[in-house]
Simulated assay, not measured.
Amino acid sequence: MTDQEKYDKIFEANKQWIEKNKVDNPGLFKLLVADQHPDFLYIGCSDSRVHPNQVMGLKPGEVFIHRNIANMVIATDLNALSVINYAVEYLKVKFIIVCGHYGCGGVKAAMEHLDYGILNPWLRSIRDVYRLHQDELDIIEDEEARLRRLVEINTYEQCLNVIKTTEVQRSFHENGYPRVAGWVFDINDAQLHDLRIDFEGELKKIKKTYNITGKASK
């Protein structure tokens, strides 16, 4: 099959999907045109093997999704920050989930001493996470085990970055939501693993430096 045939096949598959759902799931299209009211914001990796709705068992409209390489939440990334702002301020999500996955190519690339060109600034943020936890990671001799642990730690650190944002702090202070959770998806068996982040405990710990629930005077 040529590349063009692969491309054209998508539209034929779309038509088949529509016809199948007209029979099997006739309410789907009414659901698609309705306003979205998701309880969850999912921040995950762009990896093509991980599909948030399928993994979470949720229908269209039930999860707001943002994806990038290695599920990063970087203070200068207006894309991710805009998604968080919209999800918290307008969609009123109850949970923000940062989901990493074992076997992450971005995390693996950050562990290598290679020049990835335009990706270097992005990977540096992951390397910064490694530097913060170098003592723990360096004693793990098995490279695969070290990669898995860095995936977990990076996910945890990105959860902390979410907690640092103004919108999340203010909304939780005023409304009691959203709460932030960290997950890791295992591509080997499709299991989700909850890192069981103590959200309120972490929020309390970082408030000394990152507490921004108050308004700055003009």
Rank of each mutant, 00 (worst) to 15 (best):
T2K: 12
D3M: 12
I10R: 13
I10N: 12
I10F: 15
E12L: 09
K15L: 09
Q16H: 05
W17N: 01
K20F: 13
K20Y: 12
N21D: 09
K22S: 08
N25F: 08
P26Y: 06
P26M: 07
P26V: 11
G27S: 12
G27V: 07
F29A: 10
L32P: 07
A34V: 10
D35K: 15
Q36P: 03
P38Y: 05
F40Y: 15
L41K: 06
I43K: 01
I43N: 04
G44S: 08
S46K: 13
D47W: 01
D47Q: 06
S48P: 09
V50W: 05
H51G: 07
V55F: 03
V55C: 03
M56A: 12
M56E: 01
L58I: 05
K59T: 10
E62A: 06
F64D: 00
R67E: 04
I69A: 07
M72V: 06
N79T: 05
N79Y: 05
A80F: 11
L81A: 05
I84R: 01
I84Q: 00
I84D: 04
Y86A: 04
A87H: 00
V88S: 08
E89S: 15
E89K: 15
K92E: 14
K92S: 13
K92T: 09
V93R: 03
I96H: 12
I97H: 08
V98H: 09
G100S: 04
H101W: 12
H101A: 07
Y102I: 00
G105T: 09
G105F: 11
V107L: 10
A110K: 14
H113F: 02
G117S: 08
L119V: 07
L119I: 05
L119A: 12
R124M: 13
R131E: 10
L132K: 15
H133N: 13
I139G: 00
E141I: 11
R146Q: 14
L147C: 05
R148A: 11
L150V: 10
V151W: 04
Y156L: 12
Y156H: 11
E157L: 13
Q158S: 07
C159F: 03
V162D: 00
I163D: 00
I163A: 09
K164E: 02
T165M: 03
T165S: 06
V168S: 08
R170S: 10
S171G: 02
F172L: 02
N175V: 03
G176A: 00
R179W: 02
V180A: 11
G182A: 15
G182E: 05
W183F: 15
F185T: 10
D186A: 06
D186M: 04
A190P: 01
Q191D: 04
Q191T: 09
L192Q: 03
H193R: 14
D194I: 05
G201H: 08
L203R: 15
L203F: 11
K204Q: 04
K205C: 03
I206A: 00
I206P: 00
K207A: 14
I212E: 00
I212F: 03
T213M: 09
G214W: 06
K215C: 07
A216P: 02
S217C: 04
